[in-house]
């Protein structure tokens, strides 16, 4: 799959993701704008002694500050950096032993050892306290990543029921695309299918594709190049309406 990327996909992505100089400049300026300090105050960032050696202020509102893309070149062709697989196990609140099942499942499907995730904050309603082990995650890159992606695309996704693809709205505006899987999807992996009985607890899990793309559009283009399906926006609306009824 890595070879396929280098021989076929990267060339096509280069052609498809090309921006003409004008719109590229516009895009870069738009991103740069988010990084400017707030200008309302009389003192600018250069003259304000408070601002010296401090990080720039955050933008107002619930906005993220997105990185400024470099000028496009052969190095900026979107590429898959790593895949994060993560699962949160609710049952682990009561007994930590339930974590083991999730850890083993993730290790089976990704062939790498997961790390335990501890809760950052406590939630009283769930009886969750701070620093309790609550889930596990693993991030894979290189050949294991492509092996995992291959398994996902060839075996798991086609066999998933009532799933039409990743919603087209998913993404963090910076080319990283995430998707969630139900517990039933875990049993579709060939590594788990064989000894399904050995896992006492099946959990849902999230897969996050980290790409070097700077927009969701480019990230989606890369993933659909790897044959991951996306649902078009129209279909989603219709489906949503049906579900509500």
């Amino acid at each position: 799959m890595e070879d396929f990327y280098h021989s076929t996909l990267s060339t096509d992505l280069m052609i498809l993701s090309y921006k003409d100089p004008e719109s590229e400049q516009k895009f870069i300026e738009k991103r740069q704008k988010e990084h400017l300090p707030i200008k309302k105050s009389v003192l600018t960032r250069d003259t304000n002694p408070f601002a010296i050696n401090r990080p720039p202020p955050k933008p107002r509102g619930n906005k993220k500050r997105l990185p400024v893309p470099p000028k496009q070149s052969h190095k900026t062709i979107p590429k898959l950096l790593k895949i994060d697989v993560h699962c949160m196990i609710k049952e682990a609140i009561h007994s930590k032993q339930h974590l083991l099942s999730g850890i083993m499942a993730l290790q089976c499907i990704t062939s790498e050892r997961p790390t335990v995730v501890y809760s950052k904050t406590g939630v009283a309603q769930w009886k969750l306290r701070k620093d309790m082990p609550i889930g596990c995650k693993v991030s894979i890159s290189g050949p294991p990543m492509y092996t995992f992606l291959d398994k996902l695309v060839e075996i798991v996704l086609p066999r998933m029921k009532e799933w039409h693809g990743i919603p087209i709205t998913s993404g963090d505006q910076n080319g990283n695309i995430a998707m969630g899987f139900p517990a039933s999807a875990l049993s579709l992996f060939p590594d788990i299918e064989g000894n399904y009985d050995m896992f006492p607890l099946m959990t849902g899990f999230d897969v996050i594709f980290n790409t070097t793309a700077y927009t969701d559009y480019e990230g989606r283009m890369l993933l659909s190049g790897f044959q991951i399906p996306f649902t078009p926006r129209k279909k989603m609306g219709r489906k949503g309406r049906i579900n509500r009824n």
């Binding site: 280069m14 090309y18 100089p21």
Partner: peptide, 16 residues
């Protein structure tokens, strides 16, 4: 990598 770089440059020249 070099080849890709070269191809990119040519691709870009053609665009402009």
């Amino acid at each position: 990598m070099f080849l890709q770089k070269l191809r990119y440059r040519i691709f870009k020249q053609n665009k402009i």
